[in-house]
Design a protein around this nucleic acid. Structure first.
Lengths: 144, 144
DNA sequence: TTTTTAAAAGACAAAAAGGTCTTTTAGTAA
DNA sequence: TTACTAAAAGACCTTTTTGTCTTTTAAAAA
C-alpha cells in the first residue's frame, strides 16, 4: 500500500502517541524495536517528522519523542502527503496523467469510488484516533 | 497505485487487444507511442508477458502482438499478481506482517472493505473488458 | 537465398527507495 | 564543568525500479 517510509512514520507516530497517553516519551531505540523497523532508518524518518513540525523531540537524559498536545490532531492524509505525495490518493488507476469525467480511463468509473473511500478514510483517521485504538498492538508495553 | 511495469503492461495489453478487435496487430513502436511509455522498456515488459503466455508475438514483416482468442480473458488480478505480486491486494494498510480479525491493526476494520472492493474490481475486470471500453482512449487510431 | 522487417535476449546504466554508520549538537545530572 | 545521554546531521552504501543500447534470432518477401 504505502511505501516503507510512510509505514514506519505511521507506526512510529502511533507508537509515540500511544506512549504519550501513558505519560511516557519513548526514545528512538524503543520505538524502532516496538514497531519492528530498522533503527537508523526510523531515526532519520523521525528527524524529518520533527522538522516538519509533526512531532517534538528533546535531547539528553529523559529525552525522547512526544506530541504537542496544544496542536490539532494529525490526519493520516497530512502525513501521507508529506511523506510520499498524493499519487495514491489522487492518481489514476490506469496511470494516465489526465483522467477525468470528460476523458475517463477504462477504469475510471470503477476505481473512482474506491479512491474516494480511501481519501475519506485517511482524512477522517488521525494518528491520535489510531493510537487510542492500539492498546492490543504493542507487545512489551502491555506487560508492564 | 501500481508500479510502472504493471501500468505499462496494463495499458500495453489493453492497446493490443483494442487493436486486435479491429483486425490489427500492433508492433512495439506503435504500442509504446500510443500508450506513452518508453519504447525499450515497454518491449522488455511485453517480452515478459509473452513468456508468461499472456499474449503472443510474431516476428518479421506483418508481425506484432496479438491475443490468442481461444484463451479465456485475462483478469487484471492475474496480470497484477504476475507483475508485482500481491502486496497491494492483500497487504495490511498499516504494514503489519500479521494483521487479521484476531490481531487487527488499528486500520483493519476501516481499510478492510476498501481492499475487498479493490480485489473485486481487479477480479471482475479483464484486459478484454477494458479494451472494449477504450474506444475514446487512443487518439491516433480514432482518426482513421 | 538474400534482404528486410520486427521481436528476443541480455548487458549496461541512471534514479529512487531503503538502509547503515560516524560524528556533532544539545540537554541532564553528578 | 565534566561526564553522560539521546537526538540531529550528514556521508555513505545496497537494492530495487526504471530505463537504454546493442546484438541476435526468426519470419516474410523480393
Amino acid at each position: 500500500m504505502f511505501n516503507k517510509e510512510t509505514e514506519y512514520a505511521l507506526r512510529g507516530l502511533v507508537y509515540i502517541q500511544h506512549q504519550n497517553y501513558q505519560g511516557l516519551r519513548p526514545g528512538i531505540e524503543e520505538i524502532a524495536r516496538e514497531i519492528e523497523a530498522p533503527q537508523a532508518f526510523t531515526a532519520k524518518i523521525l528527524q524529518r517528522l520533527v522538522r516538519l513540525g509533526f512531532v517534538n523531540s528533546t535531547k539528553g537524559k529523559g529525552g525522547g519523542f512526544h506530541f504537542d498536545e496544544s496542536k490539532p490532531d494529525l490526519s493520516l492524509k497530512q502525513l501521507i502527503l508529506s511523506m510520499e505525495g498524493g499519487r495514491i490518493l489522487d492518481g489514476c488507476g490506469f496511470g494516465m496523467k489526465h483522467c477525468d469525467a470528460e476523458h475517463p480511463c477504462p477504469l475510471h468509473d470503477q476505481y473512482g469510488p474506491i479512491r474516494e473511500a480511501l481519501n475519506r478514510l485517511v482524512s477522517e483517521e488521525t494518528i491520535q484516533s489510531l493510537a487510542r485504538r492500539s492498546d492490543s498492538l504493542f507487545k512489551v508495553l502491555n506487560m508492564r
